[in-house]
């Protein structure tokens, strides 16, 4: 880790002002992403601005929904009574991530900005356009036919410059519930839809979100889900716990009086360059009866544009099956989730 100065900000305005004065600075919240990347030499801030004392740690509820401070821990959000009752998909997604220790440390704001888990990004000796633009993409490989270790990479939304998958569980649920991100910048405050917050890699994989370098996330808002909505998150991974998603799916669904799907929101994890909202799947589901065929069709629509790489082609089938499974579970709860 390179040397840095440590300063403690006392309010959002103070944090922004300090950031404005130090272009090489970083905010530190839980530290579980930032300190990890600093130890790896991927992040080398010269000033660390501690934003754990800005008073952004409350959760309040009103008729529009839930207002969550940026510094609320992942644990507190997942265990919040209203969240468990009204946004179960959020709670399930958070609890599917990392470990209790890490969720106790990790904050909502930090989770939105957890970089990515690509092994090449995390190894400063390896080429990576996202970390060092122009050096190449290690996961895609140097030579045709000799791709890098890209089993965990994305199949949706990739570009020739970067194929990394977004690793977050929470953000997939945020996208599915149409959450908004509250952002404070020196000039003004704004709300950004979670879905729009994340940027596809394109030619500039180093820019991952719409947050400016001098801006601060102050919180998120969860709008009320439609009446009668069911929601669920499911994650498939290499071991039963404490592992990143190979694939995941977050779905919010309502059925009309005739039992047809009249509202669906679908987001996918582990398969996209960003937490992947699939309007294609949603459109396929709308107005259809909740049958296996309809679910299959939606899953196929979701992955219609998928591009596989040498070691991650399985994510297309697995991602589809994950989505179909969640849809089935939502209309026929408990039909098989035993062991």
């Amino acid at each position: 880790m390179n040397p840095f100065r440590y300063v403690k900000a006392t309010s959002p305005a103070d944090a922004l002002a300090r950031m404005g004065r130090n272009p090489g600075a970083r905010f530190v919240a839980g530290g579980t992403t930032l300190l990890d990347l600093m130890k790896l030499g991927v992040e080398t801030p010269d000033v660390l601005i501690d934003i754990n004392h800005l008073g952004l740690d409350g959760i309040t509820e009103d008729r529009h929904g839930l207002h969550i401070g940026a510094h609320v821990s992942n644990t507190d959000l997942a265990e919040h009574d209203s969240v468990k009752k009204k946004w179960p998909v959020m709670s399930q997604a958070i609890l599917a991530g990392a470990s209790t220790q890490l969720r106790n440390m990790a904050t909502v704001g930090g989770n939105l900005l957890q970089g990515n888990r690509c092994g090449y990004f995390r190894d400063v000796a390896m080429p990576c356009n996202r970390r060092d633009p122009g050096t190449g993409c290690g996961a895609l490989g140097e030579q045709p036919g000799v791709e890098g270790i890209n089993r965990y990479c994305a199949v949706l939304g990739t570009s020739p410059s970067c194929i990394a998958a977004h690793p977050s569980d929470m953000c997939v649920a945020l996208v599915a519930v149409d959450a908004k991100v509250k952002i404070s910048s020196p000039a003004f405050d704004r709300l950004e839809r979670a879905e729009d917050f994340f940027r596809l890699p394109g030619d500039t994989p180093q820019i991952q979100t719409r947050l400016g370098p001098d801006e601060l996330i102050t919180g998120i808002e969860l709008p009320e889900l439609p009446a009668g909505a069911r929601s669920m998150y499911l994650k498939v991974r290499d071991r039963t716990s404490y592992a990143y998603a190979l694939t995941s799916a977050a779905v919010v669904l309502t059925l009309d009086a005739k039992g047809r799907i009249d509202h669906a929101r679908v987001a996918l994890g582990g398969v996209g360059s960003v937490p992947w909202r699939s309007h294609e799947a949603e459109n396929a589901l709308l107005s259809s009866p909740p049958t296996e065929e309809a679910f299959r069709a939606a899953a196929e629509a979701a992955f219609a544009g998928a591009v596989p790489y040498q070691y991650n082609g399985f994510k297309i089938a697995l991602g589809q099956d994950t989505l179909v499974r969640v849809l089935n579970e939502l209309v026929r709860p408990g039909a098989g989730e035993r062991p």
Partner: peptide
């Protein structure tokens, strides 16, 4: 030293955390 094993678990304000990923 990377939050991946839990050997460094301590309680801070009665919560368990990985002490290697905080300053």
């Amino acid at each position: 030293d990377q939050g991946q094993c839990g050997a460094c678990t301590v309680l801070v304000a009665d919560r368990r955390i990985d002490s290697c990923l905080t300053l």
